[in-house]
C-alpha cells in the first residue's frame, strides 16, 4: 500500500503529517519533494546508501558529424546548437529523449550519462526511509522521482509529495493507491484544496482530508467536505505548543500530548483509505 500525502500549497504541514504518520503507522517513508526534501531533518535516519540519479545525454562524434543541423531542428527543447560547424549541447535543457540520435543519418551521436541528483536511503526506528535530492540548478525533477518510486518493494509506504499540482505531483501519483490531502482552515487553504481534490479524483484512488492548524469549529474546510461528500480523516489543532516543538525540529509524535493525535489519525487513515 502506497499512500501519497499532498497539499495544494506548501507550508500546510505536509511533511509534518507524512513523517509522524509514518511513525504512527510503522510505515516506510519516501520524500518525493526533491527540491526541498525536509522530512529527514525530523526523522534523522542513519543513511546507509547513497545512489546517483543519472540521465542520458547525447555526445557528438565530431569526426562523423557533418553539421547537417538535422538534430538541432528536431530537438524540441533547443538543447543543441551549431557553432563553427560543430554541434554543441546545453545539457541542462536536454531531456535525454533520443530524438537527435534517431534523426542522425551519420551515426554521429552516442549517449553518455550525467548526475542530476541523489537518492539516500536509511533506517530510523524500524522504518525504512528514502529521499530524492535534486542537485541545485537542475531543472528536471521527474527522473529523480521515478527512480525513487519505480522499484519500491512490498510493504506500506507514506509518500511525501512535492507541493502543488505540478507535473512532479502527477508523476508521483502514478505510483500510489491512496492519498491524504493536508489543508488548513483558511480561504487560501480551501482554494488550494479544491485543486488538489480535482487532481486525486483523476486518479480514482481513495482519499481523505487532514485539517492542520484546526480551530475545531465548523469551518470552511468542514463545510466544503460535507457538501462534496469528502471524508475527513482528522485534524491537528492550532497551538503554539505544536509550532514550538516543530520549530526545534523535534518529532511531534514523541511529545506525550501530541502522540495520541497521530495515533488517532493513523487509525482513521486506515479506515478511510481502505487499508488492509
Amino acid at each position: 500500500m502506497n499512500i501519497a500525502v499532498l497539499s495544494g500549497k506548501g507550508g500546510t504541514g505536509k511533511t509534518t503529517v507524512s513523517t509522524n504518520l509514518a511513525l504512527a503507522l510503522q510505515a516506510n517513508y519516501i520524500d518525493c519533494d526533491v527540491e526541498e526534501p525536509n522530512g529527514f531533518l525530523f526523522l534523522k535516519p542513519s543513511i546507509e546508501k547513497t545512489e546517483q540519479v543519472m540521465v542520458e545525454y547525447p555526445v557528438m562524434d565530431d569526426k562523423k558529424c557533418v553539421a547537417c543541423r538535422e538534430c538541432i531542428k528536431v530537438c524540441q527543447f533547443h538543447a543543441l546548437a551549431k557553432v563553427k560547424d560543430k554541434v554543441i549541447l546545453f545539457e541542462k535543457l536536454c531531456h535525454g529523449c533520443g530524438a537527435c540520435k534517431i534523426i542522425c543519418k551519420y551515426d554521429a551521436i552516442i549517449y553518455n550519462q550525467r548526475e542530476i541528483g541523489k537518492i539516500e536511503t536509511g533506517q530510523t526506528r524500524n522504518i525504512h526511509c528514502s529521499r530524492g535530492i535534486l542537485n541545485i540548478g537542475e531543472p528536471m525533477a521527474v527522473p529523480v522521482i521515478k527512480k525513487l518510486l519505480q522499484n519500491i518493494s512490498e510493504g506500506n509506504y507514506i509518500i511525501d509529495c512535492p507541493p502543488g499540482t505540478s507535473c512532479n505531483v502527477v508523476n508521483t501519483l502514478r505510483y500510489v493507491d491512496g492519498a491524504i490531502l493536508v489543508t488548513e482552515p483558511s480561504e487560501f487553504g480551501l482554494h488550494d484544496l479544491k485543486i488538489a481534490v480535482e487532481v486525486v479524483k483523476m486518479f480514482q484512488i481513495p482519499f481523505g482530508i487532514i485539517i492542520n492548524k484546526d480551530d475545531g469549529k465548523d469551518n470552511i474546510i468542514r463545510q466544503y467536505c460535507k457538501k462534496e461528500n469528502i471524508q475527513i480523516i482528522g485534524a491537528i489543532p492550532y497551538s503554539k505548543e505544536i509550532a514550538q516543538v516543530y520549530s526545534k525540529g523535534d518529532i511531534l509524535y514523541d511529545h506525550f500530548k501530541i502522540k495520541p493525535i497521530f495515533k488517532k489519525l493513523a487509525n482513521r487513515s486506515k479506515e478511510v483509505l481502505q487499508w488492509n
Partner: peptide, 13 residues
C-alpha cells in the same frame, strides 16, 4: 499526456 514530454521521438519512428 502526463508522462509525455513532447520530445517528438515517436513522430520520427
Amino acid at each position: 499526456a502526463f508522462a509525455c514530454e513532447g520530445c517528438g521521438a515517436c513522430t520520427l519512428v
